[in-house]
């Protein structure tokens, strides 16, 4: 039983202008997100996951970015919206949670006013109603003494508290879509769990869809329904969370899973995927992009394509059929 589709991304590519030339950062990505679903996008730094999220909420500098493809959000083609029309949606129907909770808050403005700004833009509440809503939001994200905290400045709060403020800002207008860009990266593990629970609660309340961007597979296992693995700006594997953890196919996914430390691991050393994501300036889009990092495996010829190998399980290319880890050869 699938819920209604909230967001569908169709063949979206994003290119950035660097020194007058465009370089592709996201290549032909298609994804769907339903209500009540948590879609996790995982990958290393530089794999394009944040770029994709920024594209959905329309925060790229359009003077230096070229976006092609279609993004349909609640029956609106959002790539065709003007800046003003997009501003009506941003912060209202979709909200974004950013990763660095100190940098993401304006140091000169009181917490309460920063949350209230979302309401100022999108609602016609009176000042008193806004005030009450701010306190309600602070309460909801688990901040004690909302009245006092609302009058404080960001630097007076701890990292976990600031992350809660960021969440309060993102959910102020009960958005249908919440994009969470590494919401727990800057936090310690106990706070992480609290923040994830909070996100789940908020989702249940509004039947929202969540795009969760992370490189932490532990977080994915805990909250995600569907997982898309990105490498070098393209999706290399996409599957329901259980499938992905039990039956991952693509060498990159398998490498990531293997690199994840487990409590009953017998190895003393952690598995390491050699090398790094290539910079977008030296990506050859007409090749198997992950192949250079597993040189012992025969690469796909040309540019491998994403195929559905089982219901809802997509894998890019064919090389995965032969893939073995180096020590299994």
């Amino acid at each position: 039983m699938k819920e209604e589709t909230l967001l569908s991304i169709n063949g979206v590519s994003v290119a950035f202008k660097i020194n007058g030339e465009f370089y592709t950062a996201i290549d032909d990505v298609s994804l769907e997100l339903h209500r009540d679903e948590v879609l996790a996008i995982v990958g290393e730094s530089g794999s394009g996951k944040s770029t994709l999220a920024t594209t959905v909420i329309g925060l790229h500098n359009m003077n230096a970015t070229k976006i092609t493809g279609e993004i349909n959000f609640q029956n609106k083609e959002i790539l065709e919206l003007s800046e003003d029309e997009f501003n009506d949606i941003r912060g209202d129907e979709m909200g974004m949670i950013f990763q660095d909770p100190l940098a993401a808050l304006n140091p000169l403005i009181r917490i309460g006013d920063q949350i209230k700004e979302s309401l100022d833009v999108h609602s016609d509440m009176t000042e008193d109603q806004k005030q009450a809503r701010v306190h309600e939001l602070l309460n909801q994200v688990g901040i004690p003494h909302p009245e006092r905290v609302a009058k404080q400045f960001p630097h007076q709060l701890s990292g976990g508290m600031r992350q809660r403020i960021i969440i309060a800002i993102a959910i102020a207008n009960k958005p249908q879509l919440i994009i969470a860009d590494e919401p727990t990266t800057a936090l310690d593990v106990t706070i992480q769990a609290q923040i994830l629970d909070l996100l789940k609660d908020i989702q249940r309340e509004n039947h929202a869809g969540i795009i969760l961007i992370t490189h932490d597979l532990g977080v994915v296992a805990e909250v995600a329904d569907t997982v898309a693995v990105m490498y070098a700006g393209e999706i290399v594997e996409q599957a329901p969370v259980a499938t992905l953890f039990n039956d991952a196919k693509h060498p990159y996914t398998r490498s990531l899973l293997r690199a994840m430390p487990t409590i009953d691991s017998e190895d003393d050393e952690l598995y390491v995927v050699e090398g790094a994501v290539p910079s977008i300036k030296d990506m050859d889009r007409n090749s198997d992009l992950f192949a250079p990092r597993i040189p012992w495996t025969k690469p796909d010829v040309g540019h491998p394509v994403l195929k559905e190998i089982a219901p809802n399980h997509y894998v890019r290319g064919e090389s995965w059929r032969e893939f073995k880890f180096k020590d299994e050869l």
Binding site: L59, G91, F98, A103, P107, I109, E117, V121, H122, A170
Partner: peptide
């Protein structure tokens, strides 16, 4: 980042400048 946050709230560009960028 805080400017990006402001824009993610849907604050119009002029207001982003007057309220967030110029002041800082």
């Amino acid at each position: 980042d805080y400017v990006r946050t402001a824009r993610s709230k849907g604050v119009p560009t002029n207001k982003v400048y007057s309220r967030h960028i110029f002041r800082n």
